[in-house]
């Protein structure tokens, strides 16, 4: 498996991907909200597709490329989605933000000019209880232009 471009080994294939990322690799961007696929705070990209890392076992994705929020930009420059979230105040408490940002980055990689309906579909599995989503939609629209 590659995580954010680096090859990693998986000692216990039955471990949840989320636990592997957070506890073994120290990538604590993905959060455990509900642990049952409802909230999307643990969203990561597996071969470019957003998935809930709390519902995937490491052994199931051993031959894939995993990208977390830590891997969408780099140490010196934010990803354009992250820049837009800063500019448009699209994050309040911030707990959902890594998952939302990863979902949006995954959408834009496949569809650089999404309609608002596409954005809503891409975020239907990401719960945000602070923003009411409007600032998030404005941020995404600013990147998609």
């Amino acid at each position: 498996m590659r995580v954010n471009g680096t090859a990693v080994t998986t000692p216990d294939p039955a471990r949840r991907l989320l636990d592997f990322l957070r506890d073994d690799l120290g990538l604590i961007g993905a959060k455990e909200g509900c642990g049952m696929g409802e909230c999307g705070a643990c969203t990561v990209l597996v071969d470019g597709d957003p998935v809930c890392s709390c519902l995937v076992l490491v052994g199931q994705v051993a031959a894939t490329d995993v990208v977390t929020v830590e891997g969408i930009g780099d140490d010196h420059r934010l990803h354009p989605v992250q820049e837009a979230f800063v500019d448009h105040y699209a994050s309040q408490c911030g707990f959902c933000t890594p998952g939302v940002v990863v979902s949006v980055a995954g959408l834009l990689a496949k569809n650089p000019r999404p309609a608002e309906a596409d954005v809503r579909e891409a975020l239907e599995g990401n719960l945000c209880r602070c923003t009411g989503y409007q600032a998030i939609f404005r941020a995404v629209a600013s990147v998609a232009e």
């Binding site: 696929g37 809930c52 239907e124 599995g125």
Partner: peptide, 9 residues
């Protein structure tokens, strides 16, 4: 069905 994250799995 579910959400995009769920449909992807």
């Amino acid at each position: 069905f579910g959400s995009l994250q769920i449909r992807n799995r």
